[in-house]
Structure formats: structure tokens, C-alpha cells
């Protein structure tokens, strides 16, 4: 259970921003490993990329896109707080960031479906 004083949109936006950042940092070594397959030759990388075509990998990839979009939107929201005059529409800013992340995920899924 989260503590009651944290239960407001800006705190949840902070938590999503922090956790998405951590998750992306944890993913980076995997990303570099995948790119590193190219060192072993074209076939090794192509083999791995073919494996990522499976639905489970695509599903995980969608999650990754959502994380990236959430972290990007959350970062822009924080920059707006710190560098622009204060806006009273903080809840709207959180909602737009969340909407952007989900929309990015849905668009990615849709594209996967079309392809």
C-alpha cells in the first residue's frame, strides 16, 4: 500500500517517470547485446531479429514503446514545470503525458497488426 500523502496525480507521474527510467536503464544492456550480434556476422543478427517477430517479443516491445513514450512525456512535463511560468493545469499535464504514452503504445501495436 502506498502512503496516503502520495496519492495524487503529480506523485504518480513522478513514480511512473522514475520507474520507466529504471526499466529502460535495465533494458539497455539487452539492447546493446542485440546490436552486438552484428559483430558475429549478418546471419547472427538476422537470426535474432527473426526471433523477435514472435508475438511475445512484439508484446514486450509494445511495453518498451510505452515506457519510452512515458519517460519522454514525463521528462518534458518536468522541464515545463522547471523552465516555464507555473501552469495551474498540472493534472491536465499528467493526463496528457499518460495519454501520449498509451497512444504511442497503441499506434505501435496497430502498426504491428497491419504489418
Amino acid at each position: 500500500m502506498n502512503r496516503p500523502h502520495r496519492n495524487h496525480p503529480a506523485w504518480w507521474a513522478f513514480a511512473v517517470h522514475r520507474l520507466s527510467g529504471l526499466a529502460l536503464a535495465l533494458f539497455l544492456p539487452l539492447h546493446f547485446w542485440a546490436l552486438g550480434q552484428a559483430i558475429g556476422g549478418e546471419a547472427a543478427l538476422d537470426g535474432f531479429l527473426r526471433w523477435t517477430e514472435n508475438p511475445l517479443a512484439k508484446f514486450a516491445e509494445t511495453g518498451l514503446v510505452v515506457l519510452l513514450a512515458a519517460h519522454l512525456a514525463g521528462g518534458l512535463r518536468v522541464l515545463a514545470i522547471e523552465f516555464l511560468p507555473w501552469s495551474p493545469r498540472q493534472k491536465a499535464a499528467v493526463a496528457v503525458s499518460a495519454g501520449f504514452a498509451l497512444a504511442a503504445g497503441l499506434l505501435f501495436l496497430f502498426n504491428v497488426g497491419v504489418a
Binding site: H8, W11, F14, W86
Partner: peptide, 20 residues
Amino acid sequence: SQQSCREHCPKSLNPTASIA
């Protein structure tokens, strides 16, 4: 910028904006 200060201030002040 978690804004718990702004959320709880009984005088409805906005320390987050002051800190920014």
C-alpha cells in the same frame, strides 16, 4: 517536483512553483 507540498499546504500555497 512531486508536488506533495502544494497538494497538502493548508493555505493553498505552491512551494513547488517557488522552488522552480
